[in-house]
Write a protein that binds this DNA or RNA. Structure first.
Lengths: 186, 186
DNA sequence: TGCCGCATGTAAAGCGTTACATGATTTC
DNA sequence: GAAATCATGTAACGCTTTACATGCGGCA
């Protein structure tokens, strides 16, 4: 379970409340890396506090509590991030599963799914390129948080897009296209 | 939950027993797309049988039951694969999470992690290239099962590798390298 | 005969998701 | 004053994982 480390990582950038952490998981973090709802986050913060890895540094208006990482928490985060391959990386990616099973479809159906994948990758690519325009070039330290990740997502989308176009080409050598879908743009 | 569809997809290629299906999840499928143990698979096969999506076609030596997809099961699989973006794609990828949190590390630590990532991507790349050598060029239909996925994995690794090298370059502009790790080869 | 791998299953514990629930503060 | 948002929490259900458990068949 990596949720505690995700929380430590976010709090290492700057202290936040459980509510703010929840919002963070609704953005790119939750979309690409790890998702969690507030009903998982609040109890987990409590456990981390008991273990002495985070602490409440401020209590605000609506009973809000701002958490910050302790030195012990920072050390735990560092240990996890620099640890060996982990070797127990739990993978559950529905999109990748679809790609694995794609060959089970008739070529016309497979083609239309591939065209959709190519289109979605192109859209994601455009989205992240816009993000890069706004944030500018990467800088090190907490300020640059997420820039490396954005570039990573960008290159992932490029790979997916290229793969989908390649796969379409492969399939079209063997079957006439269905012709019911708009072609993917480059 | 995508487990039932993963099972339908595997059975659509050819009928198998629960045991064989379990083995399948220990390979590339479980490593990259979706993991499951036999204690999830056996009950799920029972549920699919009740719903009429699979059926037992043969009973072998050690109480083994060979399952096959029914026409209804094939239709269900097709519906799932060709369905819209699904919009509820659950993402839980520990490796990607590490990349997101990388900026929380000191530059020297971040560099050593990035070098490890680059090395692992290079290793995975070599592995999949070997697979491609064995299986040859892709062909359509159930026979080509997994070839598209292998090419996909290959391109993913290329993207990760390229990203890691790029990230290392970015960080080295701002901090002296730790020098405790072997440099990543290209 | 003994061991290994095949082949399936149950039970308990833990975790995550969904739904339900509450109250305070700000904004209009 | 009403509505939206902030901010946290509990409870129930279902799924996953881990551990435990059993027995047959092939091979040396």
């Amino acid at each position: 379970m990596s949720l505690p480390h995700a929380l430590l990582g976010l709090l290492a950038v700057r202290p936040r409340s459980g509510y703010e952490l929840t919002k963070e998981f609704e953005g790119y973090l939750g979309r690409y890396a790890w998702q969690a709802g507030h009903t998982s986050i609040y109890p987990e913060l409590g456990k981390l506090a008991v273990r002495g890895l985070v602490e409440v540094t401020h209590e605000g208006p609506r009973g809000s509590r701002t958490y910050a990482v302790t030195p012990a928490g920072r050390e735990e985060l560092r240990a996890w991030l620099t640890a060996p391959p982990s070797r127990s990386g739990k993978v559950r990616n529905e999109e990748v599963l679809r790609m694995f099973l794609l060959s089970a479809l008739d070529p016309p159906d497979a083609l239309s799914v591939l065209r959709r994948i190519a289109d979605e990758a192109a859209a994601g690519l455009a989205d992240l390129r816009a993000v890069r325009e706004v944030t500018g070039p990467p800088v090190p330290g907490p300020e640059g948080f997420g820039i490396l990740a954005a570039e990573f997502g960008l290159r992932q989308y490029e790979a997916v897009h290229g793969w989908a176009l390649w796969a379409i080409e492969q399939l079209e050598q063997h079957a006439e296209p269905a012709g019911s879908e708009a072609p993917a743009e480059s």
